[in-house]
Design a protein around this nucleic acid. Structure first.
Lengths: 213, 213, 213, 213
DNA sequence: AATGAATGAGAGTTCATTCAT
DNA sequence: GATGAATGAACTCTCATTCAT
């Protein structure tokens, strides 16, 4: 029984290889500064081959974003739906997961690139807002509301809380991919440790004698 | 009543006009996607005129960053040094000030552009890290330490706290200049209000029954 | 009968075609006044194609000089080394050869262009001095010395003689490529004939009763 | 009695100062590579001032050539007309004079520039051929003919002889202003000395035993 | 008359894209 | 299907020339 010829196997892998190459280069140098030949060559093919898979650099970019979008939002949502227990623990776990699966890996840097290029790709930006940003915030927001309802959390502003949960992760991400190489001082703790510390801080507050209502 | 000749008056104003035009366009479209002729034309001059003032697009970019760097870090530091009272109030005030003076205005968007272009301008990135990022974090860090020493704050991680104070502001900034136009949902509160709510949240914590140690 | 694909054949020929086009135009209008697009178009390609083969107009110029440098100095030197007979005959032959192979053809006009652009390409000028001018003069000088040693020539100044042998050829060359088109009077004899007459003149002298020592 | 105001004196000198500056720069870098602002600044005036005296860079170039053309051809012709004595001595003297007054000084380098730019200024080239080249050659040619008629010279080719008299001087000139700075070897004798040696060589011939007919 | 700020056509160069092989 | 030679639109930057001061 013959296995698929190598040619075929490689061919099937091409689109993903191209997307990966593009992702790496876009993060490194930005969309505009990345030449399409570089993408092809990093993916191990010639320039022309790229155009057999994606009709233009713009479309490749969009595909790259979409490809990294099937993130694990749905997965997280499912997890959350059936979860029972302290919301704080769930949130902490979700943050850790997100960092491990998204922030740390390829998928996360799409955030940076998307943020940078949003104004140049309005259609894509809208798509990103609808498919990533708002679902994520809705999910987290619903958990915060649940926590408040159950009395686990104080009756805080849900919106502010959502941002306080998301901002530190994005900040770490952006810093790492922009100034990271030039800044060995401002982040010393290691991402996971830092995330935990931030979570703890947010949960318990900064003040020593905060009045509890 | 003799006035300075118009030519002279315009000449003196040109550098700033060009920097302002460049800033606006860089935020809007990114450095690479902004044509130098556009900058000139938004500043109300012809292409060649730009080059009388800045020898290249790169140098214009650097000048733009430097020009917006005399931010009020020193000012904040002075304020902090002579301040007596609750550190929490000082921090809240500093956040408000920063947003009003920097985040909200021209100076703040430099952060976005700088973040985006850091990898393409290593020298400038280093400069930015040394002159902006590290002093800012050092200042905030020293205040947090002071708060812990005086017993106002719990003995939290200083580094995590610094990031928790900075991240939300940067996040707002970046969001506003990237997805802002496409996302009317995820931030509904108005920046000042949101900053206050985030600060309150951070100070008091999220949990209803956090154990105080 | 398979032939190489047309694409490949053309690709191999391109560098030379471009050098030839550049040479013709540089002689005609000078380096600076020749637009790179003109070079490409005379070589039958589009502007961008030029840059696939030479990274800049400067480098194209350098390549053009180098390409035409493998002149037949070495060849002449070998010829001279094994030559036996009257030096006068050898010199006359070398002049004729040089004119036929260099002065008359592509290679010779490089002299004009190189002379014109020497100050703008110091590095190249040095190279040309070392690789062309000095070897040529050394070769001719050594022949003159040999002639003097054998008693064929009077004990004249070698340096002056070398220049008297070279100058007329260069003069013809330069004149042809500068005023040639506008000056139908000052050279009527045809180059070969003129060269011979000049050589005869130099050998026998102008004076009717020159004292022989 | 008042002298002319300084302003006036400077103003009168301007055109010449500009021509001198242009000459120096054109020799050094060529016509195209010389910016008109450089010319102005070397002449001690501002860019705009140049255009009060010459309507364009091209016209300045033409004026520069014409200005240096009133060379002493007429003068030499007058000298020759009334001369009695050995033609050889007259020729030698004329060469020396030309070198001293033309070749060595400003006027001579115009030859180089004119030669370089001839194709770009056809009208000027024609003018130069008519006013400089042909008169010069006619003058020298007439002297050679006179020498032959009087029996001082052998019945050589007049044309070849004229070229043999002119070529070495032009060659020296061109070499000095092109490779001169990079070539300390090929001309060691000093121009005057070299000219004399070349003249002697031409007069007496190279061969030791030339048959006299 | 002199200046130099301003202009904009035009040059060199890059690179996304096409298409013959 | 894959290649990379070729293309040419678009971009940055230069500089001869103009003209308000």
């Amino acid at each position: 029984m013959a296995t698929a010829p190598v040619r075929q196997r490689r061919k099937d892998a091409r689109p993903q290889e191209l997307l990966d190459a593009a992702l790496a280069l876009f993060v490194e140098k930005g969309f505009a500064a990345t030449r399409s030949e570089e993408i092809a060559s990093r993916a191990g093919v010639a320039k022309g081959t790229l155009y057999r898979y994606y009709p233009s650099k713009d479309e490749l970019f969009k595909a790259m974003v979409r490809d990294n979008l099937s993130v694990h939002i749905a997965e997280s949502a499912a997890l959350a739906a059936q979860y029972e227990g302290a919301i704080a623990d769930l949130l902490r776990q979700m943050m850790r997961d997100w960092w491990a699966k998204v922030g740390h890996g390829n998928a996360g840097v799409v955030c940076k690139v998307m943020m940078v290029e949003a104004r140049n790709f309005p259609e894509l930006a809208r798509f990103y807002v609808d498919e990533v940003i708002q679902p994520s915030q809705a999910l987290i927001g619903s958990l915060v509301e649940r926590g408040i309802r159950t009395g686990e959390f104080r009756p805080v502003s849900v919106e502010a809380t959502v941002h306080m949960l998301i901002a530190p992760m994005l900040h770490m991400l952006l810093h790492e991919h922009s100034f990271g190489a030039f800044d060995s001082c401002s982040i010393t703790m290691g991402p996971e440790e830092l995330l935990d510390a931030q979570m703890a801080l947010l949960l318990h507050g900064l003040l020593a004698d905060a009045p509890r209502t």
